[in-house]
Design a binder for these strands. Sequence first.
DNA 1: ACCTCCGGAGTGAACGCTCACTCCGGAGGT
DNA 2: ACCTCCGGAGTGAGCGTTCACTCCGGAGGT
Lengths: 186, 186
Amino acid sequence: MAKKDKRTEILDAALVLFAENGFHGSPTSQLAQRAGVGVGTIYRYFSDKDELIRELYRDLKQKIGARIDESTPDLSMQERYVRMMTKFINYFVQHRNEFRFMEQYYFSPYSAEFDCSAPEENARIQQLLLAAREQGVVQDVSISVLQSLAFGPVIALVKENIYRDLDLDDEMIRQTVEATWTALEN
Amino acid sequence: MAKKDKRTEILDAALVLFAENGFHGSPTSQLAQRAGVGVGTIYRYFSDKDELIRELYRDLKQKIGARIDESTPDLSMQERYVRMMTKFINYFVQHRNEFRFMEQYYFSPYSAEFDCSAPEENARIQQLLLAAREQGVVQDVSISVLQSLAFGPVIALVKENIYRDLDLDDEMIRQTVEATWTALEN
DNA sequence: ACCTCCGGAGTGAACGCTCACTCCGGAGGT
DNA sequence: ACCTCCGGAGTGAGCGTTCACTCCGGAGGT
C-alpha cells in the first residue's frame, strides 16, 4: 500500500462511505477517520462537503469514460456496440461503489444545479447510436428513445446485481446486450 | 377540497415534499406545516419518520398496482404486454411525485432492511413474462434478463421525462414499448 | 555541522445550527 | 367535570464548519 497523498486518501474514503451510507449518512468525522486524517484537513482540500462530492463525481466520470472507450473503428456498428456495452456492464459489476455513487449523484440536487450533462460514459455510445441511425442501421427514432433502449436494460441488470445480489454471469450479459441491439435495429 | 383525515393529509404532504426535496431535505416541521397539523400530530399516527416513509411506500405500492392491472385475458400476450407497459408509463408521467418517491425508496437503506420484494407494479408484468416464456413466445432466458429488457427502457424513458424534462409524446412511448417487445421475443 | 527561525500543512475541540422527537397545557365534544 | 385529541415550544443529539494551535522540514546564518 503505497503512501498516497491526502486528497486522494479523502476521495477514496468518501467513495466507499457515500456508496455504503449515502451522502447524508456519511458525516465528515467519519470521512476523516476512514481517510486517516483530521477533520480539518478535509477543508484544506475542499471548500465544503458539497464541493468534495462534486469533485469526486468529476474525477470518476473522467476515469470511467476512459475505461469504457473503445478504439476499434474498423468493426461493424453492432460489433462495436456490443463490445462497449459489455465493457460498461463489466466495469460497474467490478466497481460497485462507483456505480452506487454515480447513481446517487446523478439523481440528486447536485447534478441538477451544476453540470447537467449526461455521464461521460454515455457520450461515446450516444455518438455511436447517432452514427448508426444516420446509416439506417438502427431505427429512425429520437435519440432519447435509442438511449433508453440501449442503457435501460443494461443499467437495470447492473442494479439488480448490485442492490439485489442477482447472480450475473457472462451468458446473461451477452443475452441482454444482444437483445438491446435487436430492439434498436431497423 | 374535501376535509380528509389527518393521517391522509400527512401522507399527501410527505409524498410531495419527499419527491421534491428527498427524505433528508424534508424536516418534520415542514411536513407538519404543509399537512396543516402540528409536529406532534405526526407522531400520533406514525411512531417515527422512518415508519411514515415505509407506510407511504406500502400505500403507494398497493395503489399503483391496482391502477396498472389489466383484466383482459382474451388478448394476445403481446397485446396485453403493450397495454400494461403503456399504462405503466402513462401512470408515472402523470404521477411524477409517486415515481420520484418510489425510486428514492427502492434504492435506499429502507427497502434493503425490510420488505425486499420488488414493487407491486412489476408483479403483474412478471407473471405475464413468465407465462410468455412458458409458451415460447419470448426468449428462454432468466426472468431477471426479461425484466431488465422490459422495464429498463421504460423506466429510463420515464426518468428522462421526469428528471431531465424530456418531452415525451405518445409516439415515443409506442416506439419504446414496441421495441422492448422485439427485444423479448424469441 | 550545528542551531535558529519560519511557513504552512495538519489537527480536533468547540460552535452554531438543524433536526427528529417529546410533553404538557388547552380546545372541544359529551 | 371528564376524556380525547391536538399543537408547537422545548430538548438534546448530531451535523458541517471553523480556527487557534501543533508540528515538521528545510532555508539561512554562523
